[in-house]
């Protein structure tokens, strides 16, 4: 007599608990499913502030003394999700890399869901990844989506005696308002390396591109020229690999492959400011 009652109450309470957990889980996923607009940038808590989260992971794993700074450089993931899957598989087999840099255009249409789709793939990397905003990420309300999902448009971090400065150079998206890129901010970042001895600048649109504010080109390139610690400036936007000194001023510019090119670069930085670029196909 007693037993069945207790069995029943056990079942009913566990059923109730499961139903509650189920409803909660459904509620959480339904939150994103019930999309208010494609420009709606709400995201799960673990897909917000990804820059800060990835930086925390990177900081937690400092480069052991004697090891070489090595990272993967790619860009323009845009709507190449199948390629992103394969890139992750390949990068995860690279020995001795510490992080991956994506040089902007995370999304194609500037939509939050696209940024989360890319993160769905890149979060499977064994190493943290860091991004800079690209022109496509500015489309419609993409800038706000990028800020919500990734983080600041201009930021910097120090890793392995190197200061990495990531800056928004998508001038055309601001209709060439004369304030983007923020050259005074860049100058300040490069004037104080926070104890590092080398510097690297990463942006999406290269200064020698038509989408870069022509009124700021000289000031920007000049700032880099006057930075003796600068290893190189790294860009995306052009979807193809390139390395050169377009201003013939001793400053090297490296352009990344887009995900669709199914290639990426493994960058090794050593010594004073020497570097090696290795192209990897996947």
């Amino acid at each position: 007599m007693y037993q069945p009652t207790s069995m029943f109450s056990f079942f009913s309470s566990s059923f109730l608990r499961n139903a509650l957990i189920g409803a909660l889980a459904t509620g959480l996923s339904a939150c994103e499913l019930v999309e208010f607009s494609p420009n709606d940038h709400r995201a799960r808590a673990d897909q917000k502030d990804l820059t800060a989260k990835n930086l925390a992971r990177l900081t937690a794993a400092p480069l052991p003394p004697g090891d070489t700074l090595r990272f993967v450089f790619s860009g323009d993931s845009q709507r190449f999700y199948d390629d992103a899957q394969d890139l992750v598989r390949s990068v995860n087999q690279q020995p001795g890399i510490q992080f991956m840099l994506v040089s902007g255009d995370i999304s194609d249409f500037g939509l939050g869901r696209e940024m989360r789709w890319i993160d769905n793939e890149l979060r499977k990397l064994k190493v943290p990844y860091l991004t800079v905003i690209g022109n496509h990420d500015h489309v419609a309300n993409g800038r706000e989506a990028y800020q919500e999902i990734f983080g600041p448009l201009n930021y910097s971090f120090v890793y392995a005696d190197t200061k990495f400065v990531l800056i928004d150079t998508n001038s055309r998206e601001y209709n060439f308002n004369g304030r983007v890129p923020d050259v005074p901010w860049l100058r300040g970042q490069l004037a104080d390396l926070n104890g590092a001895s080398r510097s690297v600048v990463i942006s999406h649109v290269p200064p020698h591109d038509g989408d870069f504010d022509p009124t700021l080109r000289d000031a920007y390139a000049g700032t880099l020229r006057e930075t003796p610690s600068l290893v190189f400036e790294m860009n995306g936007h052009r979807h193809d690999y390139g390395v050169g000194q377009p201003f013939n001023d001793g400053v090297t510019y490296v352009n990344s492959y887009a995900f669709e090119k199914r290639k990426y670069l493994v960058v090794t930085v050593f010594g004073d400011k020497q570097f090696r670029l290795k192209q990897v196909s996947f």
Partner: peptide, 22 residues
């Protein structure tokens, strides 16, 4: 835009990925 993304990436994206609920 979601449909195009799915059409070009049927391995990485699934139909639930591109679905909205009203």
């Amino acid at each position: 835009l979601y449909a195009i993304s799915y059409y070009l990436n049927r391995r990485a994206l699934s139909l639930p990925d591109i679905t909205t609920l009203a």
